[in-house]
Design a protein around this nucleic acid. Structure first.
Length: 512
DNA sequence: TTCCGACAGTGGGGTCGCAAT
DNA sequence: ATTGCGACCCCACTATCGGAA
């Protein structure tokens, strides 16, 4: 199959607003793909490369290359060239990668170049990723969409399921069961603004402490342990403590879900930055482990003694977890019978925050483990802080925000009457707000740049954030975590904005 | 008919590893 | 030795479609 066909379908998918139309377009393409092309066609139209990321970003893409006049690239040749590109390393590799990318682009038409750039940067912007591709695959093969989706979650891979399905038909889906050693996509949580709201929605529930670390899925099959991240990356080699802990448990074949976090000598959790730095270290793991030892803390069991627990209610899965994993290696929790009991949940949240943790996750006791989904039966609750800050600049948006000033530079007042930048945010804006701020900031602009505008520091905006973290990028030595816009405060003047001093005083645990 | 669940898009900051300077 | 890029951790929020209620 020619790459040009994929590029054209991708453009049509992007242009079709209806999800059903996107699915139909993908299904048609998948039906026409030859068996050898399937392992490439499916991920490409789901906006991903089968090889994963190749070390090519905007810089390596470089200057535009003169496009080919007529399409000639096949899907298979493209894939072969990108596979070769992915193996390049060592001195001179950046230039070599750029050369190979340029060579490939030179063989591609303008349409194909656009598609390839999207794939390489991970931004195809066609309004369809894995979920829509799954529906398309189901339609192309006549298999029930729910069954295909479930197989993908259990396989942790769309292309594995696609290849099996197109080769052997819907019967192949039965092969995809929870298997120790093969990671499944983890269940995720929605947010709730308060514990009371969460308990109101869920009824009888468990309230568990939310640790600010790295999500892990741990598989043990006899003497073999594998540790995977939320995106199913294998990080076993970086976390010897987790392997040791899993091997010490009184079970032979199990899959556990939990968090890895580092505790300080005082028993309190270290900052997310410290834990993440440790988990990210892979060159000298032994040294990193001495400096920042980590502990696994589990909250769910997907499989125990080889028995699949996914469809059991949380209450039963937790009973299995408690049988296998001793107390200190489990997340603290309390069980609440319903809204009438919500005060106990509030107290538990307060105690959890007092221990230095991030918040809680409220989970319905009767809910199964919805692998790969952001189920409504898990609700996280974290305290939110707010500040009044001043807009110092704004950047032009991309995609659907093209032509709008989007990303705001946020400043806090300093003692000398000036402002210091604390970070940026693009979150929390409606289309109407984007239009309004584009207009208003245009009026306040003092300098126009390619990236946006700097403005007179006059507009006050109320910002929500999750906490402070240390920063080497910003002059105050701190930055806001997960900053988002609540609303503009036109009733406030810049001299009413919050100061760096009050901000630092509110977060004594963070020292710039 | 209205409501709501699921998705995709739009980017944020930090840290590490690696190659280039 | 330092700098810059890319990958991958953490993530919030809005718009939209389409099925559920």
């Amino acid at each position: 199959m020619l790459l040009a066909r994929l590029a054209r379908v991708s453009r049509e998918v992007a242009a079709a607003p209806a999800r059903s139309r996107k699915i139909a377009l993908l299904a048609e393409l998948f039906r026409d793909a030859e068996a050898e092309d399937v392992p490439v066609v499916i991920p490409y139209l789901a906006g991903r490369l089968p090889q994963g990321r190749l070390g090519v970003g905007w810089k390596a893409l470089g200057r535009p290359v003169e496009p080919a006049a007529a399409p000639g690239l096949t899907v298979r040749e493209t894939d072969a060239r990108l596979t070769a590109l992915g193996t390049v390393s060592g001195p001179g590799s950046q230039a070599e990668r750029a050369r190979l990318v340029g060579e490939l682009m030179g063989l591609a038409t303008e349409d194909e170049q656009r598609f390839l750039r999207g794939l390489l940067t991970g931004e195809v912007r066609q309004g369809a990723l894995d979920a829509v591709a799954v529906e398309g695959l189901a339609q192309a093969t006549g298999a029930p969409a729910a069954d295909v989706r479930r197989a993908v979650m259990l396989a942790g891979s769309l292309q594995t399921v696609a290849a099996a399905l197109l080769a052997d038909g819907p019967g192949a889906l039965d092969r995809f069961r929870l298997t120790v050693g093969r990671p499944v996509l983890p269940m995720l949580a929605h947010s709730a603004s308060s514990v009371a709201e969460a308990v109101e929605k869920l009824g009888a529930c468990a309230v568990e402490e939310k640790l600010d670390g790295i999500r892990v899925q741990v598989h043990r099959d006899g003497g073999t342990v594998r540790v995977h991240t939320r995106t199913l990356d294998d990080i076993t080699d970086r976390l010897p403590e987790v392997t040791a802990a899993a091997l010490a448990l009184p079970g032979d074949r199990f899959v556990l879900d939990g968090e890895v976090i580092s505790f300080g000598a005082d028993g309190r959790p270290r900052s997310f930055q410290e834990t993440a730095g440790r988990v990210g270290s892979r060159t000298d793991v032994a040294t990193a482990a001495r400096a920042v030892p980590v502990s696994p803390v589990f909250f769910d069991a997907l499989c125990v003694d080889g028995r699949d627990l996914l469809d059991l209610p949380l209450a039963e899965r937790h009973a299995e977890l408690a049988r296998l994993v001793p107390e200190p290696m489990r997340v603290r929790r309390t069980v609440v019978s319903g809204p009438a009991d919500a005060r106990r949940a509030e107290e538990f949240l307060a105690a959890t925050l007092g221990r230095g943790h991030e918040g809680v996750v409220v989970k319905a006791l009767d809910a199964p483990y919805s692998a790969g989904r952001r189920g409504a039966s898990w609700l996280k609750v974290k305290p939110v802080h707010t500040l009044d800050l001043v807009v110092l600049a704004a950047e032009w948006g991309h995609g659907r925000r093209t032509g709008r000033l989007s990303n705001l530079h946020l400043g806090a007042r300093t003692a000398d009457g000036g402002f210091t930048m604390l970070g940026k945010t693009f979150k929390g804006m409606t289309d109407a707000l984007l239009a309004w701020q584009t207009e208003r900031l245009g009026e306040l602009a003092v300098e126009h740049h390619g990236w946006g505008v700097t403005v007179r520091p006059e507009l006050v905006v109320e910002i929500a954030y999750d906490g402070l973290q240390r920063s080497t990028r910003y002059p105050a030595g701190v930055t806001l975590r997960f900053a988002r816009v609540i609303r503009y405060r036109e009733d406030k003047r810049p001299e009413d904005a919050d100061t760096v001093e009050t901000l630092l005083a509110a977060h004594p645990e963070v020292r710039p």
